[in-house]
Design a protein around this nucleic acid. Structure first.
Lengths: 210, 210
DNA sequence: GCCATATGTGTCAGCAACTGACATAATAGA
DNA sequence: TCTATTATGTCAGTTGCTGACACATATGGC
């Protein structure tokens, strides 16, 4: 049956259908981002996006479950990378610095020499819209669950404690992101994140029996 | 003009109109909470609520801007109390313990002997619905702005640093709330919050020049 | 090349959260 | 009592989102 075939090839890049589907998906997301940047999130309607892409509104919803997902799925990719990175960090590493390293993937392009302005602009759209920001925070929360699940085996301590530390770390992340967007003079995001996280858990962590 | 009069009496409890308005408002909120508990948030429609209260859907929206506000405005009251409490804490107090004390108002009734089951049930509704939870997190974020603004004068340090510490504190708060809702054996929320916050910032805080 | 099946798409109808506009009733204040 | 404000209902409309149906296209086995 084709079902088995599909399941088997869904991860691989093979399968013409998958490829075109992915391409259409990307085109929708990119058009949406562009329109959101140009006209603002609330002022852009799904019908607008559909019209530009050249398909019906219904089809847009077949690719993306909600309007928010059109933008926020970008962060799902970051979430995967974050977990990937975290998984490679040895368990001996203190949690706080492990988190700091993992957060490196969260704002990948903004500090690089090229300084991808689009990434920052999208961040401003997300942080500027109440509903988008709410959705972003909720995604961060779900991300924390994955992080906790990953850190749980390999490290000692109760889940509740782990959750608290991870929650505090993500709190610092969001604080740093907001402070960075509010910055007056040019300042790399990594520095803001360092400062934020150093503020909370200073160098010698007393928890951590190795 | 009546405009000035209204502005003058809006705070006081005088004014029959204000009083009835407040009463209607409360009735709507209570009916909404009840229906959300009974049928679930998503399954309850504004028309349902309006029908039970005995008014038109349009009028419900005249009292509450969004469906979310019907539930989440409860936390606005908590936010006020939190700021109130925080304002009374002397500036000499370390930020972390000041936050811990202020958080005391966040889950007021659940730990008391009476154990207001409604409060916990509402919490479960909020934490159980994706959109409600997102809105809750966004409100917590705005609450943090107020907390930072309050702590800024009276304490040394840059706003960004303050924001990080406060963000970490609220991160612990949410983590404790989630852990508490997940609890298997009976456990007071205050204890969970203590543990969560102790986990992140241990007893002797190295920042804090007094 | 042909056929059965799976898949993508458009269209349409409908629901629910909102919003603005208008008419009307109730009411506070002079 | 009269007037200006306010509360409410009704109605129409927008937007996000969903299910159902029909149709076209493409895929894979023969």
């Amino acid at each position: 049956m084709a079902i088995a075939d599909n399941a088997a090839m869904s991860n691989t890049s093979t399968g013409l259908r998958e490829r075109t589907r992915r391409a259409v998906r990307r085109e929708i997301a990119e058009t949406a981002s562009r329109l959101f940047l140009e006209r603002g999130y609330a002022a852009t309607t799904i019908d607008d996006i559909a019209a530009v892409v050249g398909m019906s509104q219904r089809s847009v919803f077949r690719y993306f479950p909600t309007k928010e997902d059109l933008l926020l799925e970008k962060f799902d990719l970051a979430a995967e990378q974050l977990l990937d990175r975290l998984a490679r960090i040895p368990a001996a590493e203190p949690i706080w610095s492990a988190l700091r390293q993992a957060f490196e993937v969260m704002v990948p392009e903004t500090d690089r020499p090229g300084h991808d302005a689009a990434a920052e602009a999208i961040m401003r759209v997300v942080f500027g819209s109440t509903s988008l920001f709410a959705g972003y925070l909720e995604r961060l929360q779900r991300m924390q669950d994955d992080v906790v699940a990953l850190l749980r085996d390999g490290r000692p301590g109760a889940t509740a404690d782990l959750r608290a530390v991870v929650g505090a770390g993500f709190g610092c992340l969001v604080a740093a992101q907001r402070s960075w967007l509010d910055r007056s003079d040019p300042c790399p995001f990594a520095a803001m994140l360092d400062r934020a996280m150093a503020m909370v858990a200073p160098a010698p962590p007393p928890r951590q029996r190795h």
